[in-house]
Nucleic acid binder design. Sequence first.
DNA 1: GCGTAAACGAGACGGTACGTCTAGTCTTGGG
DNA 2: CCCAAGACTAGACGTACCGTCTCGTTTACGC
Lengths: 200, 200, 200, 200
Amino acid sequence: MPATARKPDASRRSERSRRAILDAALDQVGETGYEKLTIEGIAARAGVGKQTIYRWWPSKAAVLLDAFTAVSEDAAQGQHELPDTGDLEADLKEVLRATVDELNRDVYDRPARALAAAAVTDPALAEEFNRRVLGPQLDLYVERFTAARAAGHIADDVDVRVATDLLVGPLAHRWLLRTLPMDHAYADRVVELALRGIAA
Amino acid sequence: MPATARKPDASRRSERSRRAILDAALDQVGETGYEKLTIEGIAARAGVGKQTIYRWWPSKAAVLLDAFTAVSEDAAQGQHELPDTGDLEADLKEVLRATVDELNRDVYDRPARALAAAAVTDPALAEEFNRRVLGPQLDLYVERFTAARAAGHIADDVDVRVATDLLVGPLAHRWLLRTLPMDHAYADRVVELALRGIAA
Amino acid sequence: MPATARKPDASRRSERSRRAILDAALDQVGETGYEKLTIEGIAARAGVGKQTIYRWWPSKAAVLLDAFTAVSEDAAQGQHELPDTGDLEADLKEVLRATVDELNRDVYDRPARALAAAAVTDPALAEEFNRRVLGPQLDLYVERFTAARAAGHIADDVDVRVATDLLVGPLAHRWLLRTLPMDHAYADRVVELALRGIAA
Amino acid sequence: MPATARKPDASRRSERSRRAILDAALDQVGETGYEKLTIEGIAARAGVGKQTIYRWWPSKAAVLLDAFTAVSEDAAQGQHELPDTGDLEADLKEVLRATVDELNRDVYDRPARALAAAAVTDPALAEEFNRRVLGPQLDLYVERFTAARAAGHIADDVDVRVATDLLVGPLAHRWLLRTLPMDHAYADRVVELALRGIAA
DNA sequence: GCGTAAACGAGACGGTACGTCTAGTCTTGGG
DNA sequence: CCCAAGACTAGACGTACCGTCTCGTTTACGC
């Protein structure tokens, strides 16, 4: 029998500590950036022992992912699908403009950027990040495109997942690598061009 | 006048050391990844004093950028423009397929990913990265699209820079965040959809 | 109120590490001399992190002082006073000859010399060295001389502290600066001349 | 034939550089102490290349020895023998009081202390120091005692070299290890006791 | 209520790497 | 060929965090 890994008893977990750690991580990354985010720093700021972090999370990126997930869910509260007014272009422009605005706010940008950077070089984290944060968001586009296809607004042969990438990819690229500034006008241009490509 | 920073005399720089450092950095990142890339490790592998690295580069990301730039230039040697057979779709598919192949080779993927991750959280590095590596590559697409527009193959009102993003963004997104696997078929789908959007 | 210095919790200190560090320091200085005594070397030899040394000692001289104090106490174990056979000259010759022998053994000479050298240019260390090592030894002479004066063996007007210096100074001088070799005969001559000066 | 050691041509040596180096070493040690005396610092302060120091001196202690020798010779200018008024006690008190005064002046104390400390752990330097600085000074006492013995002022069986140590040792001991403050009164006491020991 | 076992705050521990400093050597260009 | 200047390899410095490991101290459940 292989050595059984020590598993802490989750039912006895201190909710107070969990929250304090998540908040501290978010605050710290927002103030000083990912480079200066340390486990010791989080523990000190949260008034928590280091072991309490190591007990429940495998890495500081995992802490940040949990912290960001909470924020992300707050931000998207109730919105479990994209708007569907029947006007696809208008709907997408609205959503993408909102996304641009969000990415331009420091409190959202800093932790998101930190997570993305970590995911770029850490496949395991990337998998988790996709499963819990990015995937659900992209699914919303897939659903909206599927509905639009059913309504005959976009071509039948279009792969809705690729269509999603066509929309999201350019924005993500500009955001992550800062090739050029990112604003509402850019979001509109992307929507227009992408839609021309997939329109019926 | 502010205190002038000590500037080393570049004319006395040891070319042998410079190359050894660049090679060591590339080898190290290829073998063990960015997390385990250390200045001490590079210095030891290159047979060089640490100070020689600190003298000429501000950070290990900067070393890697220099190292990668050399590789990148070797890879693109002579190819200062995209192919132009008159068939835009075929040309773009060829280029994007080649890009996909390149990004799937570890020797290229590892340092590129490391640099991208660093750039995501370091604006100064991002600026440099764009200026020296990414920018010139994107310019090739811009030129090709400009030629295609002049030839009447794509619509007059299309912003060639946005068109470039439409092509490159989806690929970069999948590569960086590993949302889904990236292969020739995906490259083809992206080209097809994007071209529909911008065709005349 | 000035910023209070972080004080480690002495009750949690690892006795094993403390001993290992002291032993390693003593061994190292005995083998390679003070010049090549490094904190890193001590830490490595003791199988200890550097921080554990920096946490408990302010300098490597302080480590050596602690290490030497232990040795010194072992050497003097039980001998909390000088012999008193009633024959002052014989007693002093015995003690000084023993001192000469001790100073000619490498295991004692090396660390003692290292400490003395450090004390010469570091007043704070000198103070500590005097308080903990040299002072108590000199006090033994002072006590013996005081007893001898009470017994009428030396003149009433003699300052016993100066008398001690008259005995110890010449030996220390020869030992530290190696002006001339130091042996039993020399010890005897010093005792004879010094005693003539202070005899009743 | 064994490899001949590189010997620089002393006839081409720059006197200007030699003086500048000696002055810089003395100034530096006087200002910041021996710990912070570095070859680089001396070179920079003297406006001299490091190699010029390494070419002519084997160690920084050797530089300091040369520098101090010059000062020492200036201080003792013309005084190639101790005063001899016929009153040995008075003569010695005068000389020792002067020595005490000198050792209490920083400009003399600092480099002398640095040299002594270096000599304590460096036998080669100690030999050189004794030959060039300390030896000649002690010889003056030996000569004075020899004269006194010839005049019948001290006992015939007294070893004048040991007598010298009896005088100088206590002072040196207090000075080097700072066991107790050193002043004129102390010098007088030492002379009185020592002389009683050696008087005819 | 009362043990008792696990989570907790705290922080010492063995380590690794940091970025800086100095040693001693080597190279270049000027006189 | 000495010299000023300073780049080079080498390696110690003292600091910051890592992840592990005790320490007592809560805390909450089963008896």
